[in-house]
Design a protein around this nucleic acid. Sequence first.
DNA 1: GGGACCTGAGCGAGCGTTCATTCGACTGCG
DNA 2: CGCAGTCGAATGAACGCTCGCTCAGGTCCC
Lengths: 221, 221
Amino acid sequence: MGKKQVPSLVKDERLISRRRAQIVKAAVGLFNEKGYHKATTREVANASGFSIGTLYEYIGSKEDILFLVCDSVYDEVVSKWEKLLDSNLRGLERLRQVIESYFRVVDDLQDEVLVMYQETKSLSGEALRYVLEKEIRIKNVFEKELIHAREEGFLTMDDRQLSLAAHHILVVGQMWTFRRWAVQKEYSVDEYIEYQLRQLIYGFGVNEQAPDKQPVPQKEE
Amino acid sequence: MGKKQVPSLVKDERLISRRRAQIVKAAVGLFNEKGYHKATTREVANASGFSIGTLYEYIGSKEDILFLVCDSVYDEVVSKWEKLLDSNLRGLERLRQVIESYFRVVDDLQDEVLVMYQETKSLSGEALRYVLEKEIRIKNVFEKELIHAREEGFLTMDDRQLSLAAHHILVVGQMWTFRRWAVQKEYSVDEYIEYQLRQLIYGFGVNEQAPDKQPVPQKEE
DNA sequence: GGGACCTGAGCGAGCGTTCATTCGACTGCG
DNA sequence: CGCAGTCGAATGAACGCTCGCTCAGGTCCC
């Protein structure tokens, strides 16, 4: 409505974002359970403790809810992540910690990450671009760290490989949430993280020649 | 009706599966473009060259279409895959070829794989279980191959790691299609495959000590 | 009484699904 | 060959329902 009179604006803003947080929280649960399309606005309203009418005081459309969710998830991921990162580790240890922390945050915010990951594609045009932009920012963190490690002499990748590696880390994290009913039933977070770190850094741990074929000069174990 | 006279039955079956193939083909395109939920049955009918009425001669419900798609995709993946695999390579080379072939098939059937991967969760109960069952079968192929490579002495993983590795390969392949607007814009299939094979087998290619630093007596962690 | 906040019945567009009807091909009889 | 009869594939208007969204009217507190 056009009734923008100045005085109440500040209070409004605060209330609005508090309410929106409520809505986001409720929506995450519902979207997780039934998916964005099958969850109805009435259900979201109910779950956040409002009537539909009230819900629409704070959002413009159903898609707005999804956008709010996606938007807040990234911020939450990044802020939680940064809290785990203050150390002044260097080199490989640092890289390891950056990746592990990321995995742990994703695990912690599973529901949110999953919704965002699965439903991003339902956003349209500008909102989609905005959310993807945030994803790229996370990829860039890894890229920066990898470049760092390379400069310190731990890695030998070229730029293309490095960019792919950064993307790869990002996605491997998200994958933990994606098929979780299949994956998380079988493996624990710790096991998964341990495996992925090993996998990322050392690969399968291959013996180039099968040891029973010829005795290979083995390095330090 | 009770008018089951034998002659026309066979003809029916054939017609039905031909029509269904038509429907699946059209549906894959549409579901890719707009997603399962936003695509309407009328659109599917149009795209496959039928009226809605006719569409419903060959399917029972909208979900049936999705099920048909998912069902046929797995079969197609496996059959195309097997065609690339007849060689009698051994050891690491064999493992490499199995993985590369899988990636190539997934790339080839992008649209189908993507739909299946994204929309599987919209299937309900029995249909869902049926489709996941097929996915597990693919994972098992990798598991078998890894066990093979281990028996030949190329790998040293324990069973848990091996199971995770099999799952990991499966997912890395699917990832190629999943965020393709982001990934495939930047990297070619060949580049991606080459990177992933390297990554899987050798990891980042780490120098444990930075060469410019003094060699620190490193222990096992 | 008046403003801020909330309510939920109601609207209408859009959807999946149905079914009375059409239509072309085929069969068999004269 | 011509005509009547039968079949079943194809059609699309219509139906019933769901869901996103609105708005006229509450409630409550200052």
